[in-house]
Design a protein around this nucleic acid. Structure first.
Lengths: 252, 252
DNA sequence: GTGTTTATCGTCAGGGAGACGACTATGATC
DNA sequence: GATCATAGTCGTCTCCCTGACGATAAACAC
């Protein structure tokens, strides 16, 4: 218990990011290709060291901006910016998780609307959005037939934890709107739930539920013209953060 | 992004513990008195440095055993041991949270049944169970009239986060049984909910709800003889961890 | 026995959710 | 332009869960 600077081992502290978005009706995560040992050439979650004067949340926001150009949604500001949601996920500190040294990684979860294309220091070939099932398979092939190795380090575990957090959190919070652009339709929001949960939802019951939950959605007055189908009303995210009663995830 | 051992600052990593229990109908947390600077003499959460070969969960379990003598409940083992529940809570890494150096603390949440008395290295005067409202008041007086200063470091924030986690988690999980001895009555479980949520619950509806949720409680066959009142059936915690539908916390 | 306390069972009304029919408003096709 | 396909929106019906609360059961205190 006594304080002795020589009594504790030195640690490196990093932040790793689980950045999720919904593209083409499936839940995708941002992966970057490692350019160095260990796990050189393998896909990994974006991340980096926490700097000296930096808070953990600041470090995560900085990494997110470096990798995606996204600004973090300020919780104090209203939901009119195009920022992403960022929250701490969990911390991973297994002694053997990094062969180089003792690294403790504070993983963060970011939810973002569909983005044009990832950029990793200007090199697009080193970053991509990949469906989470594809990244979580122990081995397999990507949509383009490329062989895919498991994620580096313990990042598969971190990604799985982040996905599970997102899946459960959209049940009882309005976080699903973080996957949507500033203005969206009820159908777009439903497709977010369907992609994240991998289910199909009844459009009529979903519409009744989300429009009937006070503070979840506020109509902007506009409508969308889409290819085929009746134009839909446009909504913005309302001020409510907690949904009560929650959205019910269909079982099995 | 390049790996350079001199490019990152050294951190100390600690685990801090929010140990909660229910005593005399109120939610209490374990606090230890600091014996050294900074915050000498102030109350704080128990905790300590993570050792070299140690996992974060191992470090938390070790600290918990040192402070309380509790063994951690093995998730793989059935719920028949007297162990406590332990889970990671969140990580706190503000650069200024410890004036001595850069310390990142991985806070853990432990839930335990009512224990005889705390022990801190054999010195009982340096550890106590205190109602969480008392510890979270910025200043005030304990139940014995002693003046109480705010918790050291950012431990009030950590404690508040742990309490909120416990309050929300007993809604949708069977974790409330972690506050109970191996065998307990429905009334004892109800008093746990009442203490953690600071509400009063209808005994009849509560009984219907918990006995009707499959896997939550399994009757042991025995009954209790208590001072006054009809003897109650004894139960053990069932195998279910997630309650669906959840317990509903009364609003306001 | 009477009163008190705690446990347990029943009843009833209201609300939310699933299942699903019906209608509306657009684009696509012939 | 009529028809079809597509997507959005409104309504209805039933079931189940919950809250409110009455009633009964089984112990103890006097």
């Amino acid at each position: 218990m006594a304080y002795d600077p020589s009594a504790f081992p030195p640690f490196a502290v990093t932040v790793d990011l689980v950045v999720l978005t919904v593209r083409r009706h499936s839940l995708c995560a941002l992966a970057v290709r490692r350019g160095e040992q260990p796990f050189q050439g393998r896909w990994a979650l974006p991340g980096g060291f926490v700097r000296a004067g930096e808070d953990l949340a600041q470090a995560a926001a900085r990494e997110l901006a470096e990798e995606t150009g996204l600004c973090v949604h300020d919780p104090a500001a209203p939901a009119q910016d195009h920022g992403a949601h960022l929250e701490q996920l969990a911390t991973y500190g297994d002694p053997d998780r990094d062969p180089r040294m003792r690294v403790v990684s504070v993983a963060h979860l970011a939810l973002a609307p569909d983005l044009p294309a990832p950029r990793a220091g200007g090199d697009a070939s080193n970053a991509r959005w990949a469906p989470v099932e594809e990244l979580l398979e122990q081995s397999g092939y990507g949509h383009d037939g490329e062989a895919v190795a498991p994620l580096a380090f313990d990042h598969a575990r971190i990604l799985a934890d982040g996905v599970e957090r997102a899946r459960s959190k959209i049940e009882y919070s309005s976080l699903a709107t973080a996957f949507c652009p500033p203005e969206f339709t009820v159908g777009e929001l439903r497709r977010v739930y369907e992609a994240v949960w991998s289910v199909v939802l009844d459009p009529r019951n979903f519409h009744r539920k989300v429009t009937g939950t006070p503070g979840f959605l506020v109509p902007t007055g506009g409508t969308t013209t889409r290819q085929g189908g009746r134009p839909a009303q446009l909504f913005r995210a309302g001020g409510a953060t907690l949904l009560n009663p929650p959205m019910l995830r269909p079982e099995v």
